[in-house]
């Protein structure tokens, strides 16, 4: 019962903060509400008793990716006048929601429809087991990911490096 309550609070928090994130005008507000959303997701992982993902979420997303975003925002020194001029923001968002709504409805409908039998009780997944799974069954994706990260690293350096005008 208590876990249900916690889930509801976290979910509400998550949805509200994500909504704020996609609708505010200033980037920094958006980034901060993104932080709240990411922390709520971490909380949801906690309710799922997935300790490893809980840590990962906080370290990688909240700790690394988001601080990188905030760093970029400050590095670029974005002023309010440099923000996009979006006079029809509300209208656009409502129109988009109208388009997205059926997709969401269909997805939720199918989830409602499908039958998830043989559910187990929630159990704590230890980091050790995750590691075993990762290195026993998912070695190849894991290694490929490393190459993907290498590519994106080299790529972003190549692209962001300032060059003399030719």
């Amino acid at each position: 019962m208590l876990s249900n309550m916690i889930f509801i609070i976290l979910a509400t928090n998550l949805l509200i903060s994500s909504f704020v994130m996609i609708s505010t005008k200033r980037v920094i507000d958006s980034a901060l509400s993104m932080l709240i959303a990411l922390l709520s997701i971490a909380g949801i992982y906690a309710t799922l008793q997935s300790s490893f993902m809980f840590i990962t979420q906080i370290i990688i997303y909240a700790g690394a990716i988001l601080s990188l975003v905030i760093f970029i925002i400050m590095f670029l020194n974005i002023k309010d006048k440099n923000l996009p001029h979006e006079p029809h923001k509300t209208r656009d968002m409502i129109l988009t929601s109208l388009v997205v709504f059926p997709i969401t409805a269909v997805l939720i409908y199918f989830i409602k429809l499908s039958d998830f039998s043989n559910l187990n009780e929630k159990t704590t997944s230890s980091i050790g087991k995750v590691g075993l799974e990762l290195y026993q069954n998912y070695v190849l994706p894991f290694e490929l990911i490393s190459i993907l990260l290498l590519i994106s690293l080299v790529g972003s350096i190549t692209l962001a490096r300032k060059e003399k005008d030719v």
Partner: peptide
Amino acid sequence: NDLIVAFIALEIASMSIYVLVGINKH
């Protein structure tokens, strides 16, 4: 032969191409 491998392979190819598309910074 696996959905996740296919996606990562796709991303490896795509990301290289993203960079190549933007290679002319001027």
